[in-house]
Every structure is written in C-alpha cells, then in structure tokens.
Design a protein around this nucleic acid. Structure first.
Lengths: 352, 352
DNA sequence: GGGTACGGTGGGAGCGCTCCCATGTGTGAT
DNA sequence: ATCACACATGGGAGCGCTCCCACCGTACCC
C-alpha cells in the first residue's frame, strides 16, 4: 500500500491522498483535520495527525490556492523610487512587524515593487489576477493612483500613513500631530521661548499633521501664531540646511527648532553649527523618526519615535481581518474602527 | 478599450479557456503563446495576443504552479534575531536589488523569517513543500543548520556572505579583505604610522577577512605584525567603545583606527572624544558599510562601501541560473563560477 | 498522382487540493 | 421497536493551467 506511495518518486512531497491512505481515512477527513474543522472525532483526528507527522506532510500551497480560490498570501507594495527617502529606518522595521504578525497565521508575505504610473496599472491587475488575499501599501503619495485602482478591483487594502484626514482606506498611522505637540511642549517646558519648525512638503498629510501639532502646542501655551517661525522644506538634508538658513535670517533670536524629520534636523544642525550656534546651549533641536542618525548625531538628537514595527503588526492584523471574515472590499459605513492611529513617544537626548 | 473590458469584470478574472474562445483557438495554443513557444504561426499568435489584451488576461499563478510543478517564486530568508545588527543599511538595499532583478523575470519574491533552530527545520520542510524555485539566504552565521538542510532538500540556494573560505554553496560576497586593505593603504598614504583595528567576532568569516586585509596592507608597506594594535569586538557600538579603550590603554600613541563596521566606529569615536583625541587631527578613523550614520557622524566618517544593492541583483541572477536550466541542486564539480566577490569602494570623508 | 514529413493545432489527462453532497452510524424521543 | 436527526465520514467534481499525443493540412518528393 505504501509501496506505491514510496515509488512515486525519490524526493517527492507526500500528498493529502497518501496521508489519507496511511491514516486509513478519506481525503475529506484529512482536509478537515488540516483546516481545523471541528467535525472530526478525536480518535480520527489523532490518527490523521500521526500520519501527517510520520510522512512529514506539508500541504501544497498552489493546489490549495487553486481549489479554494484564495492565496494565503499578502502583498506588501513598495513604491520604489519615492520610498527611498523614508526608507532608512522605516522599511526594515515595517517589514519585520508585518512578517512577524503574518508568520503566526501561515500567510505568506509577497514583496512587490511598484514602478512608474504605467506599471502601477499592470501591478493592480497582477495583484487581482494572482489573487493575493490582501495588499499592504506603504508610503504612498496622495496622488498615487494605486490605492484607487486596488479598491476598484475589490482587493482588501490597508495603507500605512493616511493620505488625508478623510482617508477612505483602512489605515495605520502614527500620531504625527501628537508627537509634534509633545516635542514642542517639551521645549516649552525647558524654557525655550522662540521655537521654530522645519516642515516637510505640506501636501504630505503627515507633514501637515506635524505642523498642526506644532501650532497646537504653541497655541495651548498662549503663544500667538507666528508664520515667520515656520519654514517649509522637503524631508531632505539639503532642505533642512536651507530652511534653517531662512529661519536664522528671519528670526536670529530663535532658541529652539523642531524639525519634522531627523534628516532635516541633521541638515539644520549643520547650518546652526556653521552659524556658530551651540546645541543645545543656544538652540535646542528636535527631530522626528528616531532613526539611526538621531542616536549617532553630536549631540545625540532628541526625536519623536514612531512605533514602526508595531505599525507593521497592526497593518498585518488589519488586513487579516479585512481579508478574512467578510471577504468583501466594500468600505463599511458608520464610524471607522479601521483607522488606527498609534501613539508616538519622545526620546529625549542631548540636543534639547 | 483595453482597460474597459478588464475593469468591468469586477470579480472574476478571465481564464485561458476564455481567451482561447475569444481568439477562436484551442487552449493549447494560448498556452504556447503565453509561454513563448516558437511553434505558433504569426497570425495565430497575433490573434491570441489581441484576445489577451482585450480581456486583460493574466495567468493564474496557482494553477500554473500546480500544473507545471514550479512556483515562479524565490524565497528570501532572513534570520530574524541576528539580522538586526547588520540590518540598518543592509536589508533594504539587498531586498531592493533582489526585487529589481526578479521583477524583470516575473518571479515573485517571498519574504520569510527564520526563527530559532527548531523553526529552521520546519522552514526547510516548508520551502521544499511549497516548491519555491530557489532560496536566498542572507547574513547566516557559520553554525546555522539551515543552508545544509536546504541543500539536503535539493532546493537551489544562494547565500550572501560566505561562511568560510570554502563555502560550498553558490554565494555572493563583497571583497572584505580588499576593502580593508584599501582603507589601511589610504591611512598609510596620509602619513599615519600607528594604525589600530577593531574587528568583529572572528568566527564571522567577513570579520576575519577584514582583519586579513588590514594585516595585508600593513605587511605590504613593510610594517611588521603587531598584535597589540588589534582589538576584537562584536559589531556593536558598546563593543566599539570598549575595544577603543583597550587600544588606547595599550597603545596611547596610535594615530589611526580602522573599525570593521560603522557602528563600531561610532563607538570608538565616543571613546576617542572622551579621551580628548581630535578626529582626524590626532586620530584618523575609518569605518565599514558606509551606512547612514557614517554620513551623519561628526566629522563625517570615511567608510568602505559595499555594493549591497548590486549584491542583491547578483544573488537574484545567480539563483535564476541555478533554478533555471539544469533544475538540479547538486553542486557542480570543477572550478566554481558561482562564487561571486564584488568590489568595495572607499568613500573618503572628514574623519581620515 | 500518391506518399511522406512536418509545422500547427486541438483537447484529454491530470497536478493536489477544497467543497459539498451522499452515505453511514449512533443517539434520543416517541 | 421505529423514526428523526444529528454527527462523522468518503469521495466526486472541479479550480485553471501545462504537458503531451493525436490529428489536420500543406508542401514536397518520387
């Protein structure tokens, strides 16, 4: 009986059928055991599990996907060109968070890179045709067509970082405004009076939120709005340098700067140094992201930490719940429990 | 016209059969067209291609995998716990290199995390059963059982970073010894005389190579070996600090340090500062990896850059050639063209 | 003119699984 | 004892594709 099985081929993986034969049951029963159906008696289940263990059986994913019309796979889409800026700390952390949460469920993680706008159409079609159970989108820009394309195909999608206050897609974001508010409050608490900020491009929703947080903290403390303390940059180091020069020119007496990213803070620091300002004695400096450069800057940079790995886990959980029960991509009405905002944390170091 | 057709079918994707009907041909012919078989006449091929475009047809991967007994997928295995050290610049670059090279071939990239030793056995079994066409292993330790497990299953495997001089697996590595040699030669050229080094754990082959390169450059320049200038650390910042203290205690007059990683260089820098040594005036400092912290250190750190993205591309190409033609996992005899060593590059900055 | 070859083509037979319906087998109620 | 209804189980019918063999027609040969 097993002779036939063993003869099939040397290195061939055992099939459901073979497990069934070995356990002396039918295919259906083995399938039920594997999928955790309750409609199997205890002794039968034990027999099947023994057979599975003896044969070292692992289900064939392709066959399962074909028969069940699901993929047991989640795609993580990375918009290659743009992603680079955000990349440093972001990418590996989000991936490991997602991977961790997915590993527990037996779902596979597919990594996909989106190229130009043209390719994104193909990509959406591909994802639909390959029947991934869900798509995770990271660091997409507000004008990216991909999210809507995906929504059109009905594939459950979760986005990291809302594109606007009214993000229609399920999303996971960090509390950008809260983080900025905490940072500025910290500066105020340390006696700083003239606090400037360097923002990212304000079309990026997260950048706008950070600016809101900055304004909020100042307003709360009774400081009137002062546009001359706000410089818009673009999340780059060079942008940070330039913005800092503007700020110094406009408000030479400033005594603190909140930069909306560590990289811009690094740029600002250089300009500050060049201008002879000491950190933190003359000017306190705070960044955002708590990336590797923050820890290694001189002095070490106080920064707002985002729980990136945790965001990855949350995204995974969200997509699992989206793809799981209802298996329908239609946006739910009513208040949305599918918009997660995770708290940030201020990591105080020598620069403030 | 194309998009319209494709989009209207909200739920179901078109099948091969439907394309065949539309083009007025049989299933076999459509299959041949899709797989680029030459045995199709030009007019027929054109008709089929038109039908494919009109329907927005994309082959069902699961069905193809099941029927053809191949997966069109490559798994990238990341040993989670350990990977963290190397992670910063490494991970995202290698992934994007691999992804780029794979995207062109229609292969999927699967991301897998290996847990403890126990899980690695399961993982090897999984990979075998799920019939990935190849496995890419990054930053594995010399004593990791996974590579041999994989070799046992016959799955083509490529490793990044050799585990020893006699790495049996096809591998892609950077020229660690050459990079170290260049760094030390640069130091010598700038007139430094007493050059120390901080190494990683020497069980790690790459760390040993860097030490060899350091020794080689010194020997070439006629300097005799001097063990008191060598401190072994563990690739961590704290290790770098400690090693630097040892070195300073043993050889107070040293005027240059080559650290085998940027992170250790960062640690060394702190100790140097604390000891009142100026960089680069009193002591020149060089790191390895050219990571983000190198660029943002003060002064910016001279560092040896590894072509990590290029290494990713090379790994992808290697695994494709391994998995493709022969489809056999047995190690080839004779001289091995499957051991790639990519050149490194010294990025000179203010610290040297 | 008939025969031979061969490029082109259609379609049957699975790949290993899930789904679901039909078929036991046991329990409790009548 | 009979019926009803649960529960447990077996196995047929595909999922959409590739592989391969049989078949058709045409060009070419004798």
């Amino acid at each position: 009986m097993t002779a036939r099985t063993a003869r099939t081929r040397g290195g061939k993986a055992p099939t459901l059928e073979e497990v069934a034969a070995r356990a002396g049951v039918g295919r259906g029963t083995v399938s039920r055991v594997i999928n955790g159906s309750p409609r199997v008696s205890a002794p039968t289940r034990a027999a099947v599990e023994a057979a599975i263990a003896e044969l070292g059986y692992v289900p064939n994913r392709a066959a399962r996907a074909l028969a069940a019309n699901r993929a047991d796979a989640i795609a993580l889409v990375v918009p290659e060109p743009e992603a680079r800026f955000f990349a440093e700390p972001y990418f590996s952390d989000i991936v490991s968070g997602v991977g961790e949460a997915l590993a527990e469920t037996g779902m596979q993680l597919l990594l996909t890179f989106a190229g130009g706008a043209r390719e994104r159409h193909r990509l959406a079609q591909y994802l639909a045709a390959h029947r991934v159970d869900g798509v995770l989108l990271v660091s997409v820009r507000a004008d990216d067509p991909l999210p809507d394309l995906l929504a059109g195909t009905g594939i459950p999608t979760v986005i990291s970082g809302r594109r606007s206050a009214a993000e229609p897609l399920p999303s996971v974001d960090s509390d950008n405004a809260g983080g900025a508010r905490t940072a500025v409050a910290h500066l105020l608490a340390r006696g700083r009076r003239t606090i400037a900020t360097i923002t990212g491009r304000l079309e990026v929703y997260g950048a706008a939120c950070r600016l809101d947080g900055y304004r909020g903290a100042l307003t709360e403390a009774g400081h009137g709005p002062d546009e001359s303390l706000i410089a818009v940059a673009d999340f780059t180091e060079e942008g940070g340098r330039r913005a800092m020069r503007e700020l110094l020119a406009r408000r030479p007496a400033l005594d603190a700067v909140f930069a909306a990213s560590d990289v811009m803070a690094a740029g600002a620091r250089q300009t500050l140094r060049a201008a002879g300002r000491r950190i933190p004695d003359d000017v306190a400096l705070i960044g955002f992201d708590d990336s590797a450069i923050a820890r290694h800057m001189d002095p070490p940079l106080t920064s707002v930490r985002q729980p990136i790995e945790e965001m990855g886990r949350a995204m995974a959980r969200l997509i699992l719940s989206e793809a799981g029960p209802t298996a329908s991509g239609k946006p739910e009405p009513g208040g949305d429990p599918r918009q997660l905002v995770l708290p940030t944390e201020l990591v105080v170091r020598g620069s403030s």
